[in-house]
Design a protein around this nucleic acid. Structure first.
Lengths: 357, 357
DNA sequence: CTGAAAGCGCTTACAG
DNA sequence: CTGAAAGCGCTTACAG
């Protein structure tokens, strides 16, 4: 116990257990820079294998882990990516989050969570995240009017990738990662047409929302190809929620007079809407799929557990998260093109759809 | 353009837009330390209001945002908290995540996301998060055999709070934030008893899991108080998934011979199980709630949109997240007591329960 | 190719 | 109470 170590009796300057690069270097009898280069596998290093082994072993034995703050200060790289979304509670974006997190982890990056509404109200948080060099890049979810106005500003301060783009910003401010929305609803519509449905309706989100425009167009295109149209009267646009899906179908049903005067299949603009539609159908005693087929965009974990289980088309959300991270970590990250995420939408046929009665 | 500034013509040493504390100090004609103290509202500072205003204004005008890496290196405080959970896709823990995120943000902290399984397989990620001083503290979700073995080690390296505790670690290794599991199932059982049910069954997660033990005990206690018991034959223990809830009810149903020989109400160990039970009931043509009442632990967003909507008891997950963060940020954070999160469970009566037929 | 020196941008004992 | 100096722990031009 007699002072061979540098531990001081009074106040220890750092908590025990803290091992610095200098400690590793000393233990391996090399300089700190050389230790740094060996530990970081610098290819220019010509040290003998023995020396390298000595350094690696010393690091291992001392349990050395580099201090990230010091690295960051020196290299201007935090190893952190921010993910700023609207509504974490929505099951829809969990897959995107998972994809982003997995891909980040594969590159030894971690994800920091931000909330759009909070960033809008908490100026301090905004500055820390956007201007404080807290993260190396940001994945932001567009489509929120007030927030969209800030995206250009954010993209100027930090490498940024947009998911779920607002139309004005598309391809002009930062790369956009988006799925092929039109293909998704086209696929759903073609599937229903193939089943024999000829009159197909739609309950979706706000009419002017960019996502709705794309999804509605997909329905229209598929119908047009089959020589049919999307009738105004078979359409309701409210919000993207389950409650809206329920209200939407109730609204549609009030328009139905005779038994033949109604669509035989309905598409829900997203899975929440689809869930609400299923509920309204049950409440209105409309048999699904016997009297009415129901299908929706987005395949979430709940789809197969509903009664009846819900036919859906899944968008490659996980892959979008991965792509967003990959773009952020690639050089140069500021490419301005629009990236449609690759795997095409995929159909999940379940019990809520069938040939028309 | 003639050299009053320190900008060099050749390679700029830092990207434009980067403002350092020194720049603010120079603009305000004070020393950097004084500027630091004023910006951080050090109460010992006696500078004149004019001086203070000058510094604040200079910071504002230059758009100064402190470099977090430098602060962290100096103060040994990252402003980051890690949240390590098992299964982000589960709707159950989203509320916990939200609560933690909100409370963290209120203290100008951000949340970093970790995944238990990934941390177990990726040694590098584990070291970075646990030993790399990447975060100031960790909220870890227990109840995962392999991971539980690491929790003590983690708690030794970093301020740690456990949620969803493994029994061995409870109160011995780090503070535990847990809801009153027993009270939740007791409440559900008492409600069903009050409706007139006398034979109540249970489909829950793995028998030996600590959470299941607590929840099952709650059912037993409430039944005992009413002079009833939880019959072995009315019980199935599989996993915590919707699939297990479905399989569980199917299994129970095979045990029912005569029409009178069955429970009139069933409790699902969590909301996923409850969802699966609802599905199995529909598949088996068991009318809910006419023939069988179904209720479950955890109130998620989907509960009210199911058909029939699901009666649940909600645990204070949001508050647990908040409490966990508050503990981590309070001094000393290493208190070893068990913290039962405060608001008691709350009953949400919906359409899946009724008086026995 | 390696080592000694400098420096990333802050904050905080330490002198005055 | 304020300022000059030191130092947090790294990495990287820069000399040798």
């Amino acid at each position: 116990m007699t002072g061979r170590t540098s531990k001081q009796q009074g106040r220890p300057r750092r908590q025990s257990g803290d091992v610095r690069l200098a400690d590793v270097a000393a233990a391996a009898r090399v300089s700190a820079p050389l230790a740094s280069r060996i530990l970081n596998a610098d290819p220019l290093v010509r040290a003998t294998p023995e020396t390298k082994a000595r350094v690696l072993e010393a690091a291992e034995q001392l349990g050395y882990v580099p201090n990230i703050a010091a690295k960051t200060l020196r290299q201007r790289r935090t190893g952190l990516l921010g993910l700023v979304v609207h509504n974490l509670s929505s099951p829809i974006y969990l897959d995107l989050l998972q994809g982003a997190r997995t891909e980040a982890a594969a590159n030894n990056y971690f994800l920091v969570l931000g909330d759009v509404d909070e960033l809008l109200t908490d100026e301090e948080a905004y500055r820390i995240l956007v201007n404080g060099k807290r993260v190396d890049g940001l994945i932001v979810q567009g489509g929120h009017g007030e927030f969209d106005q800030h995206i250009a500003e954010i993209a100027r301060a930090l490498p940024t990738v947009i998911v779920n783009a607002p139309p004005k910003l598309t391809g002009t401010v930062a790369p956009l990662v988006a799925p092929d929305e039109g293909a998704a609803t086209r696929m759903l519509t073609e599937y229903l047409l193939a089943l024999g449905h000829t009159r197909i309706g739609l309950i979706s989100g706000p009419y002017e929302s960019p996502t709705n425009v794309l999804r509605t167009n997909g329905v229209r295109e598929a119908l047009a190809e089959a020589g049919a149209i999307l009738r105004e009267e078979d359409t309701v646009h409210l919000t993207w929620s389950a409650e809206a899906g329920r209200a939407g179908l109730r609204e549609l049903a009030t328009r139905w007079d005779g038994p033949g005067d109604r669509p035989t299949a309905l598409i829900g603009g997203n899975s929440l809407i689809g869930i609400g539609m299923l509920r309204a159908a049950a409440e209105l005693d409309i048999a699904v799929p016997a009297e009415l087929s129901i299908a929706a965009v987005h395949d979430t974990w709940i789809s197969e557990h509903l009664v009846p289980s819900l036919t859906t088309v899944s968008l490659p959300l996980r892959e979008m998260g991965e792509t967003a991270v990959r773009l952020l970590l690639s050089e140069p990250p500021r490419a301005r093109q629009t990236i449609i995420s690759d795997p095409p939408p995929r159909l999940h046929v379940r019990a809520s759809t069938a040939a028309p009665g």
